[in-house]
Design a protein around this nucleic acid. Sequence first.
DNA 1: ATTACTGTAATCTATTTAGTTACAGATTTG
DNA 2: CAAATCTGTAACTAAATAGATTACAGTAAT
Lengths: 135, 135
Amino acid sequence: MNGRFAISMHILTLLAKAKGEWVTSDFIAGSININPVLVRKEISNLRKKGLVVSREGKNGGTMLAKPATQVRVSDVFLATRQGTVLGSARNSPNPDCPVGRQINRHLDSLYQEAEEALIRNLGTSTLADFVHRFD
Amino acid sequence: MNGRFAISMHILTLLAKAKGEWVTSDFIAGSININPVLVRKEISNLRKKGLVVSREGKNGGTMLAKPATQVRVSDVFLATRQGTVLGSARNSPNPDCPVGRQINRHLDSLYQEAEEALIRNLGTSTLADFVHRFD
DNA sequence: ATTACTGTAATCTATTTAGTTACAGATTTG
DNA sequence: CAAATCTGTAACTAAATAGATTACAGTAAT
């Protein structure tokens, strides 16, 4: 995983704290200290995953699609990950070698089991729990 | 995590199967299908972590430093990871924002807990278990 | 009509990761 | 000791990925 999870958690935290208000991508970008376009791209992804809703035009912005108590941290993780957490970089091992021929398959199942443990852990807390950590 | 974990698991699997033989980086590179120098770099890291031993000169090579039953997959993970599994890319949030000021700290503890769950999972199997998966 | 937003494509830059070349040092073998 | 075969590393290049920027069309309020 990369910084996208962090950006999404930041966005969602701001939205949770602004309960019921439309928050602009410029405001969010100012808090994260990144470009507003990146924020909108990330929001676009969160919207596709059903976590937020947006409104265009003047006084527009974004808000949570559901209460923060109903968003698990694992939902955010699943929304932002690409590929696997462990090795994404895939080698092309030698098919003439007994180990090379099978290793990707075995690594895959190893990755999958480990990732399930990770997701189970992230599934034990919600966005609301995370927001409660802030002063 | 990146491809380094996969490369290290591949190396260690070959070493486990060649029990008691000095295996050359060229042979390993041929199985993984990458450059021998990359293999030696990775071996250098594994050696520093006490997982393998090497011998220079003619007929030299590398072998496991201890039985495959005594190497947990989590040891390999810990030997190859850099930074955290989840967000490595760190933003520099706005310190004037209450959320921006605290988020890195809260994300850190979230990451740490999740990573511990991952490591616990990887700690349940050994290199020997992994090697047994091969035909 | 103007202003303040979102949405997205296209492009550029920076960072990270992987691959390569080059060569010194170690050890065996003849 | 000389040749052959390895490791160990530094220095450099290339490729892949992530992040930033520009530009502009579309939408909604005033």
